[in-house]
């Protein structure tokens, strides 16, 4: 089975976020594999181990994503591809990323593509379904279970807490929801092996794309931090009085009840 994983390198949102000259300050920040993409990598490895084939992890980004791609290889993926946009495109959006990924994937004879359901930084959840549409293959988002038999896939999809059991066919794109699996940590031998695994780097040119083909359709004009909250009020006194005071505050001051 020919399996591809879409992986985004993301800002670890556990980090404190600051803004300098209109941009999120990335100096010294920790970068990680988007947590949902870890589920995607794990699932791809499990499907390969059960059905045979090969797992290729692909990321659109800059050279810095090599580190996360190596981690994916150390987890057990077979190959990695970095589509390096650094020299070609300055501003992009989800249209840009999806178009690049689809151009890369279109002649790869994929059986299965797994992505995360959302990136914790950009947070749009667009890239998976967009790529599937561009490749004209079915997709199922936010999955918590995947079973493959021949060319039939049975998938459990999380729909705002309910689950749908859906039957569909390969080639297929799915996006991972929490609960799909428990991503493994790279083992020491895994890390050693990863150093020898292929990590290819390509550019837009190699995909016969130029900058105009992938020009963003939207633009960010301002980034800001949420308004600082006033320090809250911790109530004091007898518990019964605190409860009475709280109900009064919620009713009369905050007017939410």
């Amino acid at each position: 089975m020919n399996i591809y994983v879409l992986m985004k390198r993301t800002f670890d949102t556990e980090e404190k976020i600051t803004i300098s000259s209109g941009k999120i300050n990335e100096d010294g920040a920790e970068f990680i594999i988007n947590p949902y993409d870890e589920y995607a990598i794990e699932e791809a490895i499990q499907v390969r181990d059960a059905h045979g084939g090969e797992v290729t992890v692909v990321s659109v980004g800059t050279e810095e994503a090599e580190k996360q791609l190596r981690t994916a290889l150390a987890m057990g993926a077979d190959k990695a591809v970095l589509i390096n946009t650094e020299d070609d495109v300055e501003e992009g959006d989800q249209f840009t990323t999806s178009k690049i990924l689809a151009e890369f994937l279109k002649d790869k004879e994929v059986d299965l593509i797994i992505g995360g359901n959302v990136a914790i930084d950009g947070g749009s959840g667009q890239v998976g379904p967009r790529v599937a549409e561009l490749l004209a293959i079915p997709y199922i988002t936010t999955i918590t279970k995947l079973d493959i038999e021949g060319t039939t896939a049975t998938v459990v999809r999380d729909v705002e807490g309910d689950s749908e059991v859906i039957e569909t066919s390969l080639p297929l794109l799915v996006t991972a929801q929490q609960g799909l699996n428990e991503p493994r940590y790279p083992s020491l031998p895994g890390i050693m092996k990863a150093k020898k695994k292929p990590l290819d780097e390509i550019e837009l040119d190699d995909l016969d794309l130029d900058e105009d083909d992938v020009e963003a359709k939207t633009k960010t004009i301002e980034i800001s931090l949420p308004p600082k909250k006033e320090a809250g009020k911790v109530l004091e006194g007898e518990l019964e009085d605190q409860v009475k005071e709280l109900v009064g505050l919620l009713h009369n001051e905050a007017k939410v009840v």
Binding site: F11, T13, I17, I19, I24, I120, D121, G122, G123, E215, A216, K217, T218, K219, T220, I221, E222, I223, S224, L225, P226
Partner: peptide, 21 residues
């Protein structure tokens, strides 16, 4: 027409506009 949306898991906000289409 300016759209506001949370980014970085709600720790920041961005304002976006449509530039094409």
């Amino acid at each position: 027409l300016v759209f506001t949306r949370p980014i970085y898991s709600g720790k920041a906000f961005e304002k976006k506009i449509v530039t094409d289409g």
